[in-house]
């Protein structure tokens, strides 16, 4: 485990190496991929990327929460949350990679 963090830059570098477009265009395409996923989710669509995983949007109803510090009741507005469910393949690769 190296503990390093990858960013958009690393993803666009990978696209640059793999496809041979310019660095600029590779970066733009990585952004396009993320933006299309994000806007589908914002429009309420689930996004299923086979062999990667599924992003699901769920609506939560309003409820009464409590400030854990003061004990005060606070209303929690209805909101939308997103969950990611990794594919079987992703789970296997991540588990195997971290064990070795």
């Amino acid at each position: 485990m190296s503990g390093k963090t990858l960013t958009r830059m690393d993803l666009s570098e990978a696209v640059y190496r793999e496809v041979g477009l310019s660095r600029n265009e590779s970066a733009q395409l990585v952004e396009d991929v993320l933006e299309h996923v994000a806007s589908a989710l914002v429009s309420g669509e689930n996004v299923k990327i086979s062999s990667f995983g599924t992003f699901t949007v769920r609506s939560k109803t309003a409820r009464v929460g409590r400030n854990p510090k003061t004990g005060e009741e606070v209303p929690i507005e209805p909101r939308r949350v997103m969950t990611f469910r990794p594919s079987h393949l992703m789970k296997e690769r991540v588990d195997a990679g971290n064990k070795s």
């Binding site: 485990m1 190296s2 963090t5 990858l6 960013t7 992703m90 690769r93 990679g97 971290n98």
Partner: peptide
């Protein structure tokens, strides 16, 4: 992304 996670990295 999968490769990075398999290496113990964050994305």
């Amino acid at each position: 992304i999968i490769e990075a996670l398999a290496d113990g990295k964050r994305v």
